[in-house]
Structure formats: C-alpha cells, structure tokens
Design a protein around this nucleic acid. Structure first.
Lengths: 218, 218
DNA sequence: TTTATTTTTTAGACCGATCTAAAAATTGAC
DNA sequence: GTCAATTTTTAGATCGGTCTAAAAAATAAA
C-alpha cells in the first residue's frame, strides 16, 4: 500500500519519464514535487524498496512494470473524477484539477469501477487526456501541436497540454473548447502568434504560448 | 486547517459527547479511535490550541462552538457521500461506510455544495441519519428504539443505530429497510427477542440486540 | 587531465502522530 | 481518611516526510 505522498511521487515520475520510457533525474523530480533534492533521494529509495521504481545512485530512476500500472491507476482515477466533476456536477473545466488531486487517492476499486460505469466508460477527460482502462491500457490519440500546423488547414482541438486554470479560462473566454474546429489564418513572424478562426466564424489572435499548448488532429 | 487525523478525532468527540452536550473522557476517546490514552492526550492538547475543544486535565474535553460546526461539516460530507454512493452509484447500504470515511476528508466547499444540489438536498442518509445543512443545522427526527415499542402497534423504520455491514446485511436479508412498517407480534420474555411482521406480511424473529439497533416512529 | 561547476547523496535535525513505561492525579473501598 | 485501583498525563522513543549543510560523485572547462 502506497501513501498519499508516495502516490504523488510515482505519478510525477510517470509523467516526467513520458510514460516510463526515460529515466528521471533527481532534480527534475524535486522541481516537479516542489521539494528538495535530498527529500527526493529519500523517497526514491523507499519507492525502490517497494518495487515501484529502479533506482541507481546518480543515474536517476526508472519506473518498473508494477510502478507503471500503479501510476496508471492513479491517473485513471484522477481523470475519471475530473470527468465526473464536469459531466455530473457541472464544474467548469478549470475548476476540477485541484479537487481531483485529492479524489485520486481514495482507495476503493469498487468505487472507481462503479464511477466508470456511471459515467459510461469515457475515453477522455475534460481536458482531452485519455483515461486508462481497468487494466491500465491507455489509448493515445495521435495529435499534434497547433503551432506546427499548416496555414488554412482545418484542425480539431483534442486536448490541452497545460491545464492551468488561467489558460483554461482564457480558452473558454475566446471560445476554444475540446472539439472545436480551428483554422490558422495567419502566422505572425515577429512573436509566433497566430490568427485563427474558431468553428469557421470567430477570428482571434492567440499567442505562441497558447498555440503550443493546444493539441489538435487534422 | 485540520489534518485528516484531527478531523477524525473531532468527529469522534462530537459523537461521544452526544452532539456536544457532554464531556468526553480520555479513555473513551482512545477506545473509539483505536489508540492509546497517551496519544489522545497529545492530540487533545493540539485540538485545544486550535480552538476546537476545551480541555482541562483529568476532566475530559468539551467541544466548542467552532469545533461543533467543524464536526457537523465532516458529518455532512460523510452522509452526503454515502447518499451519493447508494443513490447514484448503486452501492448497497452496507458497502458505503468505509469509502465515505475517506471521502469525508476531501476539502472543497464547492464540491460538497454541488454534490448536495445534484442529490436534491437529501434530508437523511441511507442509514436514516439526518444530514446537517450548509449552515450546520441538523434536524433530528424524534424516534424511539424498536424494543421499547408496544405490542401490535404499527411503527416505521427510520434509522439504524449500529451501521455495521453485518447488521445491515442481516436486515436486508430478512427484508427490513428504511421506511418499512413493522409490528411487534410477540415479545419473548426469556431473551428479549421479538416476533415481528414486516409490511404486514412477513413474520420473523429478531434478537433483542437487533431490536435495540432499530430506530422507529409511530 | 587537472580544476571548477553542477548534481546528487549523506548526515543530522525537526515536526506530527504514534507508542511504551513510568509518574501523577483521581476515584473507590474499607 | 488512608490505601489500593483506576485513569490520565508526562517523558522519552520511533517512524515518515521533510529540511539544511556538508560531502561525494559526475560533468564541463581550461
């Protein structure tokens, strides 16, 4: 059984390692956990003895198969809860992350399966991220960053990379949502900002920063 | 902000003090928290400095107005979550307590208000216990213990006092539920067991122990 | 390839929640 | 009212998660 804190470390390791494909360095983990490298070293030893990661001094950590499954279960819970909050309780998509950070630690396999049933087995959460299934299988939809798309090509918004409340609120404000159709009308050389149309109608400018945080498909 | 543990202590104090009316002794609290008296003394000091209880050495603790409100909020959350689990996610009434013990600690006023809205502002939880409102007001329905009722009188099951899974499963098995109409057909002098009819049909024997854990109204 | 810089680990401490063992206060018996 | 039994508190230790400061290893620079 993992503690609240251990679960958070494991989740961070999973994300920083791109789903377990790369090693994660101590300092990177320290930064993402808002803690100090010394604390990370301690925790990493513990997670290692629990078989969640393999840890070699000075070489960073690698998540194990067991650890990956564990991480995916936490992510599954997080995303199912986010979906519940938006879909059932009428939260806005920028309000759910913090609450889901708490709810993801509730221990009850029955609860999460019943929640999944109730929600109708959603494939993605309100930010467009895929929800791992019961077995930990995750279906990644191939998508690209908006800023890399060609001019005049119709693309559909699939997910946000950075899900910070302020970014999400901004998107809502200008009318961008998951499923919206965008077209790049113009690229501004100077600052990398884009002029786009939303659903063929509204025409707005978005910054390079925003464009780099929108994932789309053609 | 109270920790998980502090919240559990406060809830126990609230219950053991009958809603804040009596003082609670150290040993009683230790027993209900499955811990040692020494640990209770430490925690009680902390809750006292936080203004949740007043503590006087060797005389037990009394919950303060602030502490009572805090306790009622935790109870509100617990009971709303139990209602959600049964009403929305199709849990059986004997499966919800443990999960609600976890969910009651989620910190989000918005969540609990939205949950309350979604559930349609239920007045009681699946075990018949009243749900405190947003302001901490709790409407106790005057009810009596089944074993004290007169023979032949029709009574309605309102709540269970002991909500242990085994008791609840037993009740389900014999067909007793919140809202059922019971009539005491006979009292057995020897062991205090009762012969009752359920909804005027089924006739069963229940033990004194069971009869003392069913709350009814006439 | 030796030195300087960065990264990581170790050592030792603190805090919160718990424990055991022993001391102190209260209660009950006579 | 004194002594024994019970209850409660204190003292000191442990454990998990964190920290700072210093040591050690790895990396980059000269």
């Amino acid at each position: 059984m993992l503690s609240f804190t251990e679960e958070n470390y494991l989740k961070s390791i999973y994300h920083l390692s791109n789903g377990g494909t790369q090693a994660v360095l101590t300092n990177a983990l320290a930064e993402s956990m808002n803690t100090k490298a010394a604390s990370v070293t301690d925790m990493v030893k513990k997670l290692s003895t629990k078989g969640m990661i393999s840890y070699e001094k000075y070489y960073g950590v690698k998540i194990t198969r067991v650890g990956k499954t564990e991480a995916l279960m936490i992510i599954r819970k997080h995303r199912l809860w986010e979906t519940f909050l938006v879909q059932t309780l009428q939260f806005n998509w920028d309000e759910v992350h913090e609450v889901a950070e708490q709810l993801e630690h509730i221990q009850s396999p029955l609860l999460i399966e019943k929640l999944d049933d109730f929600l109708g087995h959603p494939r993605t959460d309100p930010h467009g991220h895929p929800i791992p299934d019961k077995a930990g299988k995750i279906v990644e939809i191939k998508q690209v960053i908006l800023s890399t798309c060609a001019l005049r090509k119709k693309v559909m918004v699939r997910a946000v990379r950075n899900g910070s409340p302020s970014f999400l609120q901004y998107l809502s404000k200008i009318g961008v949502y998951i499923g919206a159709t965008l077209t790049i009308v113009d690229k501004v050389e100077f600052d990398g900002s884009l002029e786009i149309t939303i659903d063929g109608k509204k025409k707005v400018f978005i910054s390079r920063d925003a464009a780099e945080n929108l994932m789309v498909t053609e």
